[in-house]
């Protein structure tokens, strides 16, 4: 398995094409209402490929065609009866090779926020990367995978918004772990020198149908001021590997943001609007710890990166 493994997290769902209800930021390179110039990062002119018009169906019953506009986002109605504890047998696997990561620790934050302090639950996997735990279905949870830092085999790998579909059986899922080798060689190929006191965000951009979007761009911003970290470098993948010459997401929808300072950040996803401006089609949050990688996917129409499986909705 390769980096495409995160595509396996793609959630199902599809709706009617809804035409012209996407929100625009009002022109090329503005700050999406903050006044901060984002044109260094958001400058795509090629048309995107992917469905960004039928997302409102994802809001469940009663959703309208004007359910999101770039400042307000789709809100899904969750069936709380589907939020139950279930047994989980997970596999901690290398993000790039898919090989099991032996003796890795899985830490869970049930409130989906790894910045609050100690994890709510931790378990050490076996030699085959297998972990057993309990997990709440239809509930976004944050996790971290890590190994003995003295061995320098992996970097701390965080992922938020991990939502498992409702099941009455056992959840079988995979947790990503990024090796130190992969963490170092990706900036090498991109011609970037990663600062040890900063971190990396990686993720995929998905359309309304859950497929990767081609032609989208990502920017990382301070949630309160909209400022872009000076050290930020954003690159895109081709064939599931980062490519320094790729100006926007390719068919795989994957992107990476390097040298993001420690803290909490918004990740915004834009496409060209066809009129010289850009449309903010999705947003999520990312927490950065020094020397770590955060996996945070962006879904069209959603402002928090939480897209629930259909089975979780009312």
């Amino acid at each position: 398995m390769t980096l495409l493994s995160i595509l396996a997290l793609t959630l199902i769902g599809c709706g009617d094409k809804d035409g012209d209800d996407t929100a625009t930021d009002g022109g090329t390179g503005d700050g999406g209402g903050t006044g901060v110039d984002i044109s260094a990062y958001i400058n795509v002119t090629d048309a995107h490929q992917g469905d960004i018009d039928s997302c409102c169906e994802l809001g469940g019953s009663g959703a309208t065609s004007d359910c999101w506009d770039g400042s307000s986002w789709i809100v899904q109605a969750i069936d709380s009866t589907k939020q139950v504890d279930a047994a989980l047998v997970g596999n901690i696997a290398d993000f790039e090779s898919g090989d099991p990561v032996a003796d890795a620790t899985l830490s869970l934050w049930f409130l989906n926020d790894p910045t609050v302090g100690a994890p709510d639950y931790s378990v050490v996997g076996d030699a085959d990367g297998i972990v057993a735990s309990t997990f709440k279905t239809c509930t976004p949870i944050a996790y971290k995978t890590s190994t003995d830092p003295a061995l320098d085999a992996t970097v701390d790998t965080y992922e938020i918004n991990q939502i498992e579909a409702y099941t009455e059986g056992t959840i079988d899922t995979e947790f990503n772990s990024v090796s130190s080798t992969t963490y170092a060689i990706i900036p090498s190929l991109l011609g970037v020198s990663p600062d040890g006191d900063k971190g990396t965000i990686a993720g995929a951009a998905y359309d309304c149908g859950g497929a990767p979007i081609k032609g989208a761009q990502v920017v990382v911003r301070d949630p309160s001021t909209g400022e872009i970290p000076e050290s930020l470098v954003v690159k895109y993948f081709v064939d599931s590997f980062p490519n320094r010459n790729q100006p926007y997401t390719s068919e795989d929808g994957l992107w990476v943001a390097i040298n993001v300072p420690e803290g909490t950040w918004d990740v915004e996803l834009y496409v060209a609007d066809g009129d010289g401006g850009h449309t903010n089609i999705g947003k999520t949050i990312a927490y950065i710890f020094p020397g770590s990688i955060m996996i945070s996917n962006v879904y069209t129409g959603f402002g928090d990166g939480k897209r629930y499986p259909d089975i979780c909705l009312l």
Partner: peptide, 8 residues
């Protein structure tokens, strides 16, 4: 060696 790692 540190930047290319064993991957390259």
């Amino acid at each position: 060696a540190a930047t290319w790692t064993t991957g390259a």
